[in-house]
Design a protein around this nucleic acid. Structure first.
Length: 919
RNA sequence: GCCGGGAUGGCGGAACUGGUAGACGCGCUGGACUCAAAAUCCAGUAGUGGUGACACUGUGGGAGUUCGAUUCUCCCUCCCGGCACCA
């Protein structure tokens, strides 16, 4: 029943046929079906930058392979696609070309959609969305209003980069060396009102729920945990001697309860994770911006100058890291809350105003930074902790010294000596940051870390001067952007009523799509038709907010929208609960922190608003590796380095295949190699996927990308590797063509197969078992492809034309096509038909392994002598250990190595090897 | 500084639970086909020695556990990623 088949593989014809079949049959439109197990496979949606790059091809191929595999396993698969369409590049393109960002974006979407379709991805295009469409972003606005009602969204002043020439706010990446990227003007910091999402309210849950994500890479979970940055400690206050509370204006934090009001002395609040060292405090340090520092500097020009220097200090993280600890006395003292001692207050350049209380207690004996400030300024150092290492070494030494030397055992004196030296080193350490047990601490002596912190916190609490407290590194999420191409924040400013939320009935606040930004300010401010409106409360003339939302807002919930019914009239509908959570999420590691954290936060907000029922949006995460390529350049004696694309470079090899040089094709002159790096515009080492598809076809591109490396690792581009992938597909085509050319094959009759046929069939089912495991559990598509290649190499050699051999070959080719179908779907579609099947290969079920085909009568065992391979023996599957042993010892080569030696023992590992141990 | 991941032929990579190191692909070498080239097919391909059967060495370096270590433990070197005066 098979139809005639081309002798030669024409990728373009095969691919357009398969794609139009899927199109006509709406093969990938996914529908809710409670009777079937669902599988929601999502790849991070692209920013429509213009055209696909290799990273996209890799990302979406991984997702497509998993989707197609799961479909053949019988799951109800959803694989959607959309566009993260708001953002700064559209505004930049608009300035460069004078085109509105909307037009540029929609044109890019149209082109890139074509590209995605030409790669044959099994996408449900009926669910396509673009975040710049009002029917999507209206729900950003709607949820923003709900968050405002819940106190999860709020307004406060925030700092922005201000370009004084263009009169505009710049994103961090538009500030180069402290200057505006377009004007070169020195950038100022400005405080302006902005909206925030209180993600810190969810900090505890976002941290704790990482434990619910065992199928996320550990790396990503650690990065998120570090980013959230929980520290548990004690917040407490020192009384400031002789300074009235009113003198400090508004102290940074006086929210502490208790009897602090009984006098008018100001309080200096600090936070510490090492309350156990509180008896070792010899000074306090405050940030340059701290009110106490400002107060002290009033009549102290030297201090004022120092504070200025600290404030001017670089904010580059790398500089901060290498910066020297510096301090200067304020001349003010505080009272230690537990000992009543007078403690001097210093300004420290290492104290951050933005974290904790902007002030720290300083314990030079147990904190490195405090130590260096103390040493430089001759401040006292008081040791109050005996470290766990010191205690451990002491006990070891005591045990060794107290037991007599056993003459049978090795001499223990050298060990004692080395322990003594270690102990000496530990005791001499001027600054010990390790935890341990309190000493020189009065009533707290002998307490370990936990007990000491509890006791000290309780005593501080009794005096009304402190409590246990948890501090977070995570900050609330500022979402206001002073940019045009984003989702408008639905707020109206009224002179009488203040900031008024846009009523639900007036949503969406539609962004005009015909603006062309010119680089000076937000063009929305110049659009009277957008800005001018009526106050929803009092009806007076009012102005619309022109700030738009951070584009991370758009991408924080698109997965839930995909899962909703098409054109849902709410933010999400009940269909979401069928598909969500995403079973497999795939994307770049660069989103490990922000996007994934915001999405997790947003899901929890939606859950608390009873919109969805899941806690975590992404069950399983795969972070694909980068795509790399070699970098070629020339460095003229004067002028800039010139980079050349690898396609324009020819490699010279010596006769061992080793690199002898590289020449530019156009002029035949040498170029230098700059090693391997990520494909980038600046290094001119990118490969255009479009050219690849046109030259070899989508299947070759997909095969290469999946074969060259496992998905999580980096992938090195290789032209010859691509040719190898194309060669393999030609070989596959030829194998099937030759087979079907001989007419249809009989059914396999297991009972009559000869040894060679059984062996062929065994290999087939072993391969099937391995490939299934590689897809389903290991996600190592490269090894799955490698074992199918081995099978095909064996099938080429299995050229006996008897009826049963042809039957075995038919079974093998059927399964080969199925095993490759997720990776190279087009050629598989065609070959499946050619092999005589009436259905399409996408509707074929994944075959199960025939365990009876795996059995064998005898197996080969490896024989080792003292762990070295010396021979091989063939033994019956059920051979007894004693017989195996005898056979192994009888092997001629084994005897060469055992002759004249005494056999100590023989280890038989069933099914694997025999190891003969001789002396 | 702290946290995480790595290092295997000429190259990309494989070896999954401690059990034959180098699967598969690329490249290279030789051969077949061809007037020739390309394509294709066949054979070889970790290094050293040997015509060969084989032997020795070998998974960044050093030690250890084990009958047996790319795999486990300790120390060291280098590379990549994240966080970074976070109290």
């Amino acid at each position: 029943s098979s139809m005639p088949m081309d002798e030669i593989y024409h990728a373009a014809r095969v691919e357009s046929d398969a794609q139009s079949y899927w199109d006509q049959h709406q093969s990938f439109a996914a529908t809710e079906d409670p009777t079937r197990e669902k599988y929601y496979c999502l790849s991070m949606f692209p920013y429509p930058s213009g055209k696909l790059h290799m990273g996209h091809v890799r990302n979406y191929t991984i997702g497509d392979v998993l989707s197609r595999f799961m479909r053949m396993q019988g799951k109800n698969v959803l694989q959607p696609m959309g566009w993260d369409a708001f953002g700064l590049p559209a505004e930049n393109a608009a300035m460069a070309n004078g085109v509105p960002p909307a037009k540029w974006t929609y044109d890019n979407i149209a082109y890139m959609k074509k590209q995605l379709q030409s790669l044959g991805f099994a996408i449900d295009w009926t669910r396509e969305l673009a975040t710049c469409r009002p029917d999507y972003y209206q729900w950003n606005q709607w949820l923003f209003l709900r968050m405002l009602e819940q106190g999860i969204a709020y307004k406060k002043a925030g700092t922005v980069n201000w370009d004084p020439v263009d009169q505009t706010v710049l994103a961090n990446e538009q500030v180069i060396d402290g200057r505006g990227w377009r004007t070169g003007a020195i950038i100022e910091k400005r405080e302006i009102p902005m909206y925030y999402f209180a993600i810190t309210q969810y900090a505890e849950e976002l941290l704790g729920d990482l434990a619910k994500l065992p199928d996320w890479p550990e790396r990503v979970r650690t990065m998120q945990a570090n980013w959230i940055g929980k520290s548990v400690g004690v917040r407490f206050a020192f009384r400031v001697n002789g300074v009235a509370r009113s003198a400090l204006g508004s102290p940074p934090s006086t929210s502490g309860r208790g009897n602090e009001g009984e006098d008018d002395e100001a309080l200096l609040w600090v936070f510490t994770t090492r309350a156990d060292t509180i008896m070792g405090v010899t000074f306090c340090a405050v940030a340059a911006e701290h009110p106490l520092a400002t107060y002290a500097a009033k009549n102290n020009p030297q201090l004022a100058a120092f504070i200025d220097e600290c404030k001017r200090g670089s904010v580059m993280e790398a500089d901060i890291a290498t910066m020297e600890e510096k301090g200067m006395s304020t001349g003010i003292s505080v009272t230690h809350p537990l000992t009543g001692e007078k403690i001097p207050v210093w300004v420290g350049n290492y104290v951050l105003m933005g974290y904790g209380e902007g002030a720290v207690m300083a314990v030079p004996a147990h904190d490195d930074r405090d130590y260096w400030v103390a040493v430089k300024n001759h401040l006292p150092i008081k040791k109050v902790i005996r470290s766990d290492t010191e205690i451990y070494l002491e006990s070891q030494l005591r045990d060794l010294e107290s037991t007599p030397q056993d003459p049978e055992l090795i001499d223990k004196r050298p060990l004692i000596e080395s322990l003594r030296q270690d102990l000496e080193t530990v005791r001499k350490k001027p600054c010990e940051t390790e935890r341990g047990v309190c000493i020189n601490s009065g009533k707290y002596d002998g307490l370990n870390y936990t007990a000491a912190v509890d006791a000290i916190a309780a005593d501080l609490n009794a005096k009304g001067l402190g409590e246990k407290k948890t501090m977070w590194r995570l900050r609330d999420w500022g979402i206001s952007r002073q940019r045009y191409w984003g989702c408008p924040i639905p707020i109206i400013h009224c002179a009488h009523c203040g900031d008024v939320p846009v009523p639900d009935k007036d949503l969406p606040v539609v962004l005009p799509e015909d603006c062309v930004p010119d680089g000076s300010g937000n063009p929305l401010n110049k659009r009277a038709d957008f800005v001018n409106c009526k106050c929803p409360k009092c009806g007076a003339n009012a102005q619309r907010e022109t700030d738009t939302m951070d584009t991370f807002v758009d991408s924080s919930w698109y997965y839930a929208r995909f899962a909703s019914g098409r054109g849902a009239s709410a933010m999400v509908d009940r269909e979401t609960d069928y598909w969500m959570p995403v079973d497999q999420y795939i994307g770049g590691i660069e989103h490990a922190i922000l996007h994934l954290l915001y999405s997790r936060f947003w899901s929890k907000v939606m859950r608390d608003l009873k919109l969805v029922s899941y806690d975590e949006p992404f069950k399983r995460l795969l972070t694909q590796g980068m795509v790399l390529n070699e970098i070629f350049f020339r460095k003229p004696s004067s002028g800039r380095v010139q980079y050349f694309n690898p396609v324009d470079v020819e490699l010279k090899l010596d006769d061992k295949g080793q690199r002898a040089g590289a020449l530019l094709k156009s002029d035949g002159q040498a170029v230098e190699s700059g090693g391997i790096g990520t494909m980038s515009k600046s290094k001119n080492n990118g490969i255009d996927p479009q050219q690849l598809i046109e030259l070899y076809g989508a299947d070759t591109a997909r095969l290469f990308v999946m074969f060259a490396a496992p998905p999580e690792q980096t992938l090195e581009w290789s032209d010859t590797g691509v040719e190898g992938a194309a060669r393999f597909l030609k070989r596959l085509w030829k194998l099937v063509h030759t087979h079907v050319g001989l007419g249809s094959a009989a059914r396999v009759e297991v009972a009559v197969l000869n040894e060679a046929q059984r062996a062929m069939r065994r290999m087939l089912h072993e391969t099937l078992a391995k490939v299934t495991d590689d897809y389903a559990r290991r996600r190592t598509f490269n090894t799955a492809i490698a074992s199918v290649m081995e099978l095909i190499n064996a099938l080429y050699k299995f050229d006996d034309l008897s009826a049963q051999s042809r039957a075995v070959k038919q079974e093998a080719l059927d399964d080969v096509v199925i095993m490759l179908a997720p990776i190279v779907p087009h050629i598989s579609h065609e070959l499946w038909k050619a092999l005589g099947h009436d259905n399409a290969v996408i509707d074929a079920r994944w075959p199960s392994v025939d365990d009876s085909a795996l059995t064998r009568a005898s197996i080969e065992l490896v024989v080792q002598v003292n762990g070295k391979l010396r021979g091989r023996i063939e033994v019956a599957l059920d051979a007894k250990s004693a017989d195996i042993e005898a056979q192994a010892l009888a092997d001629a080569n084994v005897q060469r190595f055992t002759a004249g030696k005494q056999i100590k023992k023989v280890i038989v590992v069933p099914g694997k090897l025999v190891n003969v141990v001789v002396t």
